[in-house]
Write a protein that binds this DNA or RNA. Structure first.
Length: 430
RNA sequence: GGAAGGAUGGCAGAGCGGUUGAAUGCAACGGUCUUGAAAACCGUCGAGUCGCAAGGCUCCGUGAGUUCGAAUCUCACUCCUUCCGCCA
């Protein structure tokens, strides 16, 4: 949620910033609503003040056994009028709020301006001097071919029992998912200082509003038929909402949380895209990183958080690059986003494996998550950040494609071996 | 699922329908005292919103109702606690 004051006081700046995003945002109805609302508010409060005055006077007169008939007559007309005005104000406020809630965050000043992903800027690649070459003597396979030959990915069974965009991981495949998850959680908790959380995989409307998935992106979510719950599309939702409604002592910040969860997405707008393989599933595992910070430290925190996600890929020795998303490609709540894209030799391209965002106070305002300054006692919104550290399914894709050998076998990355009970090589079964 | 109780400020915990935005305690902050600290004492101490300001208005789980006036009365809902049943 944008700060109402900023939107009101710097309209041309806000509009210019919004214009750099994809989609167009017209603020004229917003400003009209805002003006009407303030007028109504002034009127309502004047009436309320009078009502309070009268009831105080009536109380005093009754105590003194005086006659309050005249005041009661005034209330007879003022009462209904007030009720009507209050109702109108309330409606207007709701309209205004829902206008405001539909506006995305303003991109930070340093974010490159661009219309879509073509405007993104590659900041760095790892390892340095990495060449996107493929072996001369053999052609790397797609991960789904690698996985099926190893007997660890079973798409057919999933299609049968559930439908498209689901997978059964079998044997070493299931174990690899578990190993990747444990490796990432250990890294973040033991070396990067995060608290591990195991949150609920269901959430409610309020939390989804807090992080910005609702009201605009309902069609991306799975919801239950008989209960008012949604399946989480990312652990960002429960983790960030842990501080919802709270006033946190400045001394307790930053709060750094990590969690493994399954994530559930409708992928409603992605029909026909990435239909094969693990890249775009309705359910996938992800290790998430969330920071709750003081405003002045959030941009630095974004660099740390991103480096923590990068460390996962470095330890797994997976080539990747770090990309600054441009204004046209950023998510709704984000003010600044870095994507990590991992190299997939089987497909000959880089694919997103992590997305790290600073939402500044955008989610905090929606959640009413605030901090209290130690010195001044002033209360102000916290800043929230989130990032994947990293997507587990896509990490498996990257391992399968990068570690495959000419004979169809897959070498287990060193970092994962402690989690795989000594397995160091997966051999094809067919 | 059944029964009972509860929901008030950072926490604890009062609150005859009318200066109660809310006693009291703790915590916190400022000060006095002290070489320093502790203790003691004095003071400050909820959030939001409108306004240049003075000041006004809103908020005691949520919504509706009764009333001139509701934290306080009525109804519905939500959540929490305890007991019973069921259950991974």
């Amino acid at each position: 949620m944008l700060d109402l004051k900023t939107v009101r006081e710097r309209p041309e700046w806000v509009e210019a910033r919004l214009k750099t995003r994809s989609g167009h945002y017209d603020l004229t109805t917003f400003y009209a609503l805002e003006a009407e609302k303030r007028e109504l508010q002034a009127k309502t409060e004047k009436l309320q003040a009078r009502r309070n005055e009268i009831s105080r006077a009536v109380g005093r007169m009754k105590a003194n056994k005086e006659d309050a008939a005249e005041l009661l007559t005034e209330m007879a007309t003022l009462g209904p009028l007030l009720k009507e005005t209050e109702g109108a104000l309330r409606t207007k406020e709701e309209d205004l709020q829902s206008e405001l809630a539909r506006l995305p965050n303003l991109p930070a000043e340093e974010v490159p301006i661009g219309p879509n992903e073509s405007g993104n800027v590659v900041l760095r690649s790892w390892p340095e001097g990495f060449k996107q070459t493929t072996p001369a003597t053999w052609t790397p396979l797609n991960h789904w071919d690698v996985g099926e030959r190893l007997g660890i990915l079973d798409f057919a069974s999933a299609a049968e029992t559930v439908g498209a965009r689901f997978t059964f991981f079998r044997g070493a495949g299931a174990r690899l998912i578990r190993a990747l998850t444990a490796f990432m959680l250990d890294l973040h908790t033991l070396e990067h200082g995060y608290e591990e959380i195991l949150p609920p995989f269901l959430t409610n409307k309020e939390s989804l509003f807090g992080t910005g998935q609702l009201p605009k992106f309902e069609e991306d979510l799975f919801c239950l038929r008989d209960e008012p719950f949604y399946l989480i599309p990312t652990a960002e939702v429960p983790l960030t909402n842990m501080v919802r409604g709270q006033i946190i002592d400045e001394s307790r910040l930053p709060i750094k949380l990590t969690a493994w969860t399954a994530c559930f997405r409708r992928e409603a707008g992605a029909a026909g895209r990435d239909t094969r393989g693990l890249i775009r599933q309705h359910q996938f595992d992800k290790v998430e990183l969330v920071w709750i910070t003081r405003p002045e430290e959030s941009m630095e925190a974004l660099e740390s958080l991103t480096s923590h996600a990068e460390t996962v890929l470095k330890r797994l020795e997976l080539p990747y690059r770090t990309v600054a998303l441009c204004t046209g490609d950023m998510g709704f709540a984000s003010a600044k986003t870095y994507d990590l894209e991992v190299w997939l030799p089987g497909q000959g391209c880089y694919r997103e494996i992590s997305s790290c965002s600073n939402t500044l106070d955008f989610q905090a305002r929606r959640m009413k998550a605030r901090l209290r300054r130690t010195e001044t006692k002033v209360v102000e919104p916290v800043h929230t950040l989130n990032g994947s550290g990293v997507a587990v399914g896509r990490a498996l894709v990257a391992v399968l494609e990068n570690y495959q050998q000419a004979d169809g076998s897959v070498v287990i990355p060193d970092a994962l071996r402690p989690y795989l009970g000594g397995i160091s090589l997966l051999k094809p079964t067919m």
